[in-house]
Amino acid sequence: LVRYRTISKIPQITLNFVDLKGDPFLASPTSDREIIAPKIKERTHNVTEKVTQVLSLGADVLPEYKLQAPRIHRWTILHYSPFKAVWDWLILLLVIYTAVFTPYSAAFLLKETEEGPPATECGYACQPLAVVDLIVDIMFIVDILINFRTTYVNANEEVVSHPGRIAVHYFKGWFLIDMVAAIPFDLLIFGSGSEELIGLLKTARLLRLVRVARKLDRYSEYGAAVLFLLMCTFALIAHWLACIWYAIGNMEQPHMDSRIGWLHNLGDQIGKPYNSSGLGGPSIKDKYVTALYFTFSSLTSVGFGNVSPNTNSEKIFSICVMLIGSLMYASIFGNVSAIIQRLYSGTARYHTQMLRVREFIRFHQIPNPLRQRLEEYFQHAWSYTNGIDMNAVLKGFPECLQADICLHLNRSLLQHCKPFRGATKGCLRALAMKFKTTHAPPGDTLVHAGDLLTALYFISRGSIEILRGDVVVAILGKNDIFGEPLNLYARPGKSNGDVRALTYCDLHKIHR
């Protein structure tokens, strides 16, 4: 019993810090008490220290592992850092350059016999395009090294910054494609005289377009951006097909006994025919423009016929181009109408809503002055909100995010209106959640004399007048207030005048 009563005193000691020596009952000389009392004092002292730490809000209350900052290894790049964003855009520009100039170089340097010394005699450094290609190869190699040090988000939505895990993730992902696209074939085969082989191998750079397509997928929600990307894709495919079309004609031209190829026909049409040795002929500019003209006309199913396939190889390629053109029509131009419709969806919704308003007016036989006010209010409210119901949009977000959005939407009023000066951010967040926005066209009466005042109004834009009878008592403008002081009276009061809008007004109100 003594032991039980001794232990039962522990909660009292913990909360009230009572010393055991003052209790005459606990001072009985028993061996059990002498053993338990020192333990009680020690526990009391420890609990006292913990309570003191909690009340003082000291940093040592938290466990040590929670006080440590997340460790980022040296030379690790955050995937959302500004440097990584700028670097990704730079790589994107280099990939676009590669997609345009690599097929052009591979096709127009394929057994090209233009006048001038061969590239091997001039030297590697004197070729501007080769120098640019070398810079692109170096940048792609540097990009691989950067990807080995860039964080990523795993399946659990955690940012991984450990170098080993980053390397394994990159090896399992895009490393092989990036490595093949970054191989400097110019340096590996330079001086061997195989410019045709170098041009063909350099087309491996186009593998990076797969990554670019995935990154550009984030802009699919913007109709104008999608339309622009589709047109660029169409032009890029036409450019690639033009390079292939020229390569076919250029390879067949020296081996044909009869002059029936499209390059021969082009030379005869523009007065620059090929001679018996295969030299001469149109310039590279004429060849490229004509090839691009043929691919565009074939892809769009126009086909004027002034550039036509004559050999079997050219006919087979033309059939493939027609098939590609039909697929592009289905996948690209078939979506253009939907994209344009999405661009004008706001206008369509406006006309639909206006039609419903006019049908309501016609069905209920609203008189002319009231009908005009109804239409003007709808037009003004639509121009202010673009038909978007803010309350319906915010309803799907958590309250903390709703408060931040409301604070942002009402920031101008909260910053410049005098009653809100000096208020804490928590108070402003709470008030912003209570605001209701209303609009009024010129001549609209917001409050009639004798109406119950259940709200306090803040003028965000425009001006109003307060009338008693036919006498203008006051004219209020931006950041002015009218209405009933909230919670100042037990019952809502009545208006002693009319409140009429002089201009288009936007008002925020808080109800009782």
Score class of each variant (00 low, 15 high):
177 I>H: 01
138 I>T: 03
338 A>F: 15
202 K>P: 01
282 P>T: 01
174 W>M: 10
385 T>D: 07
298 S>V: 13
221 E>D: 09
263 L>G: 01
267 G>I: 01
284 I>V: 09
312 N>M: 01
380 H>S: 14
326 S>D: 01
361 I>Y: 01
447 V>W: 04
363 F>I: 13
321 V>S: 01
236 L>H: 01
438 T>C: 12
283 S>P: 01
239 H>C: 01
435 F>Y: 02
296 F>C: 04
382 W>Y: 15
197 L>E: 01
405 I>F: 01
353 Q>Y: 03
111 K>S: 03
371 R>F: 01
357 V>S: 03
142 V>D: 01
138 I>H: 01
264 H>N: 14
267 G>E: 01
258 S>E: 11
221 E>T: 06
349 R>Q: 04
188 L>D: 09
439 H>G: 05
64 E>L: 14
158 E>T: 10
346 G>D: 10
328 M>S: 04
413 L>Y: 01
118 P>E: 03
439 H>D: 01
122 C>H: 01
223 G>K: 04
398 P>G: 03
109 L>N: 07
83 F>D: 03
402 Q>V: 04
421 R>I: 06
139 M>E: 01
337 S>W: 03
408 H>P: 01
144 I>H: 01
221 E>H: 09
90 L>D: 01
373 R>P: 01
156 N>L: 12
333 F>W: 06
299 L>P: 01
82 P>C: 15
160 V>Y: 01
447 V>Y: 12
382 W>G: 02
271 G>V: 01
274 Y>A: 01
263 L>C: 01
301 S>Y: 01
66 K>W: 08
257 D>L: 04
385 T>Q: 15
174 W>F: 10
421 R>K: 12
227 L>F: 13
91 I>F: 01
391 N>P: 05
229 L>P: 11
377 Y>N: 13
328 M>I: 08
158 E>I: 09
373 R>D: 03
135 I>G: 03
409 L>H: 01
240 W>P: 01
294 F>C: 01
218 R>A: 08
124 Y>G: 01
272 K>L: 01
448 H>F: 06
107 A>S: 11
267 G>H: 03
444 D>G: 10
183 I>E: 01
265 N>A: 14
142 V>T: 05
103 P>A: 01
428 L>T: 12
254 P>R: 14
301 S>C: 05
295 T>S: 14
98 T>M: 01
159 V>Q: 03
193 G>K: 14
81 S>M: 01
435 F>R: 01
170 Y>M: 01
248 I>N: 01
300 T>D: 01
267 G>C: 04
190 F>R: 14
126 C>Q: 03
161 S>M: 08
140 F>I: 01
233 T>Y: 04
309 P>M: 01
258 S>D: 06
240 W>L: 01
268 D>Q: 13
123 G>E: 01
114 E>K: 14
234 F>P: 01
260 I>W: 01
156 N>G: 13
290 T>N: 01
230 L>R: 01
96 I>G: 04
253 Q>S: 11
439 H>R: 11
262 W>R: 03
272 K>E: 01
227 L>I: 14
278 G>V: 01
125 A>T: 12
132 V>D: 01
395 K>F: 04
443 G>D: 01
107 A>K: 01
132 V>I: 05
300 T>N: 04
181 A>P: 03
429 R>M: 01
210 V>T: 11
378 F>G: 04
304 F>A: 05
94 L>N: 05
109 L>M: 13
193 G>W: 11
194 S>R: 11
166 I>H: 01
415 Q>R: 07
297 S>E: 01
244 I>H: 01
158 E>D: 09
281 G>E: 01
346 G>R: 07
356 R>H: 12
393 V>C: 08
434 K>E: 01
103 P>G: 01
351 H>A: 05
273 P>T: 01
261 G>T: 03
117 P>D: 04
186 D>Q: 10
203 T>C: 14
201 L>C: 04
337 S>I: 03
370 L>R: 01
395 K>H: 15
175 F>I: 01
246 Y>Q: 01
288 Y>G: 01
92 L>F: 01
166 I>K: 01
433 M>P: 04
415 Q>M: 07
116 G>A: 13
341 Q>P: 04
173 G>F: 04
231 M>N: 01
428 L>G: 02
133 D>T: 07
309 P>S: 01
188 L>Y: 08
175 F>P: 01
365 Q>K: 12
373 R>N: 04
219 Y>W: 05
270 I>D: 01
80 Y>N: 14
378 F>I: 08
159 V>E: 04
249 G>Y: 01
243 C>L: 01
164 G>A: 13
432 A>I: 08
102 T>S: 01
127 Q>F: 11
69 A>N: 13
418 K>W: 06
156 N>M: 13
126 C>T: 01
339 I>E: 03
87 W>G: 03
324 I>M: 07
280 G>Q: 01
327 L>D: 01
303 G>H: 03
294 F>S: 01
207 L>K: 01
434 K>W: 01
280 G>R: 03
393 V>N: 03
283 S>Q: 01
204 A>R: 14
187 L>S: 13
213 A>R: 10
428 L>A: 12
231 M>H: 05
329 Y>Q: 15
292 L>G: 01
247 A>I: 09
266 L>A: 01
197 L>R: 04
75 W>E: 01
156 N>I: 05
424 T>H: 09
438 T>K: 06
183 I>N: 01
72 I>L: 08
448 H>M: 04
102 T>E: 01
306 N>F: 01
420 F>N: 01
386 N>V: 05
270 I>M: 01
132 V>C: 14
287 K>P: 01
117 P>I: 14
266 L>T: 01
121 E>M: 06
71 R>M: 11
396 G>W: 11
444 D>M: 09
356 R>S: 15
372 Q>L: 09
89 W>D: 01
136 V>H: 01
268 D>W: 10
356 R>M: 14
357 V>A: 03
220 S>H: 09
97 Y>Q: 01
110 L>Q: 15
445 T>H: 10
128 P>W: 09
270 I>F: 03
313 S>L: 13
87 W>A: 01
268 D>H: 04
208 R>V: 09
98 T>C: 07
373 R>S: 07
297 S>F: 01
388 I>L: 08
412 S>N: 10
297 S>G: 04
82 P>I: 10
279 L>P: 04
283 S>M: 01
216 L>C: 09
77 I>Y: 01
214 R>F: 01
91 I>H: 01
393 V>I: 07
130 A>Y: 04
216 L>G: 04
68 Q>C: 01
77 I>R: 01
260 I>D: 03
119 A>H: 13
114 E>G: 14
440 A>P: 07
348 A>K: 08
438 T>A: 11
423 A>T: 03
291 A>L: 01
211 R>E: 06
72 I>D: 14
155 A>L: 12
310 N>G: 01
401 L>N: 01
232 C>D: 01
97 Y>S: 01
361 I>G: 03
360 F>I: 02
